[in-house]
Write a protein that binds this DNA or RNA. Structure first.
Lengths: 292, 292
DNA sequence: ATATGCAATCATTTTACATGATATCTTTTT
DNA sequence: AAAAAGATATCATGTAAAATGATTGCATAT
């Protein structure tokens, strides 16, 4: 019993006539006769009384609601897939710990408001793990900091460029004094920290001490309390600096520029849910260009 | 998109592999590949990522639940039809006014208790209309009084034989006196009335007056109040006669025998619901034999 | 009694499905 | 780095099921 058998069965049942059903379906009458007889043989039961027309037997009446529902579902399924203007389904996004706290909540919130039918999921993990999941199609895309991923299957898009500054308590006189204090930083592997170390190296500053914090607010509070110094997005501390709660020092752009990328598999199916997500990213950020 | 396409799609989605799905379905690998590609072409969308295995795309994930449900319903439908030991569905029974009030409620009640999953429907109307509905498969069967229906498509079965008696008030001396009173009878067309008239004719009694009642209890009350006489099943008045509330007179069996038949179309599909109904009738009545 | 409307039958064509062998690509093993 | 293993894609070919067109036969209506 296949769905087309049920389509023919339904037509005959509703029309009460093989001839009319055949016209409706665009078949020739003899074919409809054959299909119905075949269905009756397969189900080992009579579905119609033939009385100069076709009248459902009690068994046929049992089958009809199933036929109607199954055909309706087939129709629904077709619509659900082809109705691709309306973003629906699941959208699995990943993010490195470094990016999740700042722009991402805004982007997700705005996207969810615009497209509430999409089930958003956010996975926060290390960049390596994010890349693995993208290569295995477990994520539709991810926000990461570092670029150039070797793998040809990954396409990346710059979505945000931030300026990192060295921050310290207001009393600090100069950069070198600041650098003698402990650095309140994220755990190893954070790209900001890699940049920082490169600069410190270039300046010939060694003997650096770290204190590990994985929360930006804690870090800022710690710096204001003169627990140590840090290296954070300028935008995140602007309001504290204007109030005189801390002091910031700029370092050369090749070290201070932090780039956020949206990466995805080059073969990801561009669903409307994903397309609209990328649109949302772009609308929130002045920068965007395709790399690789 | 037909159900077999979905069956193949489901297997590939669940196995994550065309090769395994093919083994499971008893197909050769290349066929499964072709079916999936064809389905993707028909739906104009990609359903799987190919990464040394098959991984559902977001669109594929949308389709899967439909496929699962549709295939489940097909299975259900098949079971519902072949599970013919268990009476279910609708059973449309008809009855002439004459029979509906006595044995029928008992039969229906007993049947419903035994097979509560059958939707019983009872249509009370004239014998002619009952026969029309049976010939057009609008009723699965009907209880009627008169026999021999000319139409070859109707089969009949005797289910009940009753003895009709002439009843009158206790003071009535003999049959002829009784017959001078008005007859309280059902409307024209009632087979009992036909029998009665045949006997009266044979006895040479004319000038009969009728009063029409379509309720047996009213008739009996009327007779006890000496409003007139009547011609009713002996079983219905037995308890009144033993109390001396009325008197009954027998007439020859060729006129007094009232037969109830269960008739149906010879081509009615013998569902288990109908078979069990006929069993119930037979168990309630000592008489049963196939006629015609 | 005749004509009409409808389903059944059957020989034939057409289409879609299934197969088997082979190519191609990816991942794992050596 | 090379080879083997494991997976899907492609293609020519075979096969079975579906669809057609013409005709027959039955039941209803005029």
């Amino acid at each position: 019993m296949e769905s087309n058998d049920l389509r023919i069965f339904r037509a005959v049942a509703l029309e009460g006539s093989i001839t009319k059903a055949a016209q409706m379906l665009g078949y020739v009458q003899s074919n409809v006769t054959a299909r119905i007889k075949q269905l009756e043989a397969e189900l080992k039961t009579q579905l119609f009384y033939r009385k100069h027309g076709m009248i459902l037997t009690p068994t046929g009446e049992k089958l009809l609601p199933y036929a109607v529902q199954i055909l309706h579902l087939l129709d629904e399924a077709h619509k659900a897939l082809n109705d691709s203007d309306k973003p629906t389904g699941r959208l699995a996004i990943g993010a490195n710990h470094t990016v999740s706290s700042l722009q991402l909540p805004q982007i997700l919130s705005e996207y969810h408001k615009a497209y509430p039918d999409v089930d958003l999921s956010l996975t926060t993990s290390s960049t390596d793990e994010l890349i693995y999941k993208i290569l295995h199609f477990q994520l539709d895309g991810a926000f990461v900091k570092s670029s150039s991923f070797i793998d040809d299957n990954i396409v990346e898009e710059l979505v945000y460029e931030e300026n990192l500054v060295l921050i310290s308590s207001p009393e600090t006189d100069d950069i070198r004094t600041a650098c003698s204090k402990p650095f309140l930083m994220n755990t190893i592997g954070c790209p900001n920290r890699v940049n920082l170390e490169q600069w410190l190296n270039a300046e010939g500053i060694n003997n650096i001490r770290y204190m590990e914090f994985n929360n930006l607010d804690f870090i800022i509070e710690g710096v204001m309390a003169d627990l140590g110094v840090s290296f954070v997005p300028q935008s995140a501390i602007q309001r504290y600096e204007t109030k005189g709660l801390l002091k910031s020092f700029s370092i050369p752009p090749q070290y201070s520029t932090s780039k956020t990328f949206f990466i995805r598999h080059q073969d990801t199916l561009m669903t409307s849910a994903l397309a609209k997500f990328i649109e949302t990213i772009e609308s929130k950020t002045p920068y965007h260009q395709i790399a690789h």
